Amino acid sequence: MSVETFMPQSKSGDAVSLTPAAIKHFEAKLASQPGHLVRLSTKISGCTGYAYVLDVAEQAEQGDTLIHASDKLTLAISTKALDLVTGTEIDYVKEGINGVVKFNNPNVVNECGCGESFNVS
């Protein structure tokens, strides 16, 4: 399997969507860093293939897809990650006293047991 041959199966046609909870979470993270954005990429990792990477960046990289989630939040998606994450909903959920960013990716066919990595068909 290669990223070049994978055809994403987005239900909504949008690259990525964010829930209101995720938007609120990322806006709070960026509050002390005006003008910055959140950048989503992937890396080869774990036992099943890929891992999500979220970073705060001063600007998008060349070729990134930009999603303006709110007046305070822009999400940049790496060109290399776009095929793997198209159709993904990013959520922020509370689990006990901890908060966790969740990726609801309809393209995932396999995840490792610890939830650290994923693969697509």
Rank of each mutant, 00 (worst) to 15 (best):
L18M: 14
L18T: 03
T19Q: 11
T19M: 11
T19I: 05
P20K: 06
A21S: 15
A21P: 14
A21E: 11
A21K: 09
I23C: 11
I23R: 13
I23T: 10
K24I: 04
K24L: 12
K24W: 11
F26K: 02
E27K: 07
E27A: 09
A28L: 07
K29R: 15
K29C: 11
K29A: 15
K29W: 13
L30V: 02
A31F: 07
A31Q: 03
S32M: 00
P34V: 00
G35A: 05
H36S: 15
H36G: 07
L37H: 00
V38S: 00
V38R: 00
V38K: 01
R39K: 08
L40S: 04
S41T: 08
T42R: 00
T42Y: 01
T42Q: 04
K43Q: 13
K43G: 15
K43I: 07
K43W: 00
K43P: 13
I44Q: 10
I44H: 11
S45H: 14
S45L: 09
G46S: 13
G46Q: 00
G46V: 02
G46Y: 09
C47R: 12
C47N: 11
C47H: 07
C47G: 12
T48W: 00
T48A: 10
T48G: 10
T48C: 09
T48Q: 08
G49M: 04
G49T: 03
G49W: 01
A51N: 06
A51T: 05
A51D: 07
V53C: 15
V53L: 08
L54F: 14
L54K: 05
L54E: 12
L54R: 05
D55R: 10
V56L: 05
V56M: 03
V56D: 08
A57W: 02
A57M: 12
A57K: 12
E58K: 11
Q59E: 12
Q59H: 04
A60L: 05
A60W: 02
E61H: 06
E61Q: 14
Q62W: 05
Q62A: 13
G63I: 03
G63P: 03
D64Y: 01
D64Q: 14
L66V: 08
L66S: 09
L66F: 09
L66N: 13
L66A: 14
I67S: 08
H68M: 13
A69N: 03
A69V: 00
